[in-house]
């Protein structure tokens, strides 16, 4: 039995220790905002925060996460008004939307470490893939979110 705190609520998860965190979140905890993309930590659609760090949940076994604090897209803000979410709306970022919860979680963690990024910082630090190709809007939204968070 592994104890995970997901978005502030404690869950006892009864799964094999090699189960990816993604499936613990989606199947055991029942939060489906976090998406499965590639399954090999390449695309970032499954990004969540583990103790504040952005991790690709499809490739993190829960065995090492006993007691960890996990934040998913559902827990980012009680009213969906996190500055990054606000910037996403303002820039109308999503196209199909599949990768977006991962993109947002990656951007939030990234901006915490780098509150005033350059375009080059974003390109190097956000490696999530968007198959609709919304990279220009993603970059604009991250800059906008940085400005919102400064204000």
């Amino acid at each position: 039995m592994i104890t995970l705190t997901v978005n502030g609520t404690q869950h006892q998860v009864d799964l094999e220790p090699d189960t990816p965190l993604l499936w613990a979140i989606r199947d055991a905890v029942g939060l489906t905002g976090t998406k499965f993309g590639c399954g090999i930590a390449q695309c970032g659609a499954c990004t969540v925060h583990v103790n504040g760090q952005a991790m690709r949940s499809c490739s993190v076994p829960i065995g090492g996460l006993d007691g960890a604090n996990v934040t998913t897209i559902e827990g980012l803000s009680p009213d969906s008004k996190h500055p990054v979410q606000a910037a996403w709306l303002a820039e109308d970022v999503p196209q199909c939307g599949w990768c977006q919860s991962g993109q947002i979680m990656a951007a939030v963690a990234f901006l915490k470490q780098n509150p005033a990024p350059t375009d080059a910082d974003i390109d190097a630090g956000i490696t999530n893939i968007c198959r609709c190709g919304t990279y220009e809007r993603l970059r604009r939204a991250i800059h906008r979110a940085a400005d919102l968070m400064k204000a």
Binding site: R56, S59, V60, P61, G64
Partner: peptide
């Protein structure tokens, strides 16, 4: 995201 900022991975799987 797999090998960690601490370089310790997720032993024994990663």
């Amino acid at each position: 995201s797999c090998h960690g900022a601490d370089g310790k991975g997720q032993a024994p799987f990663i």
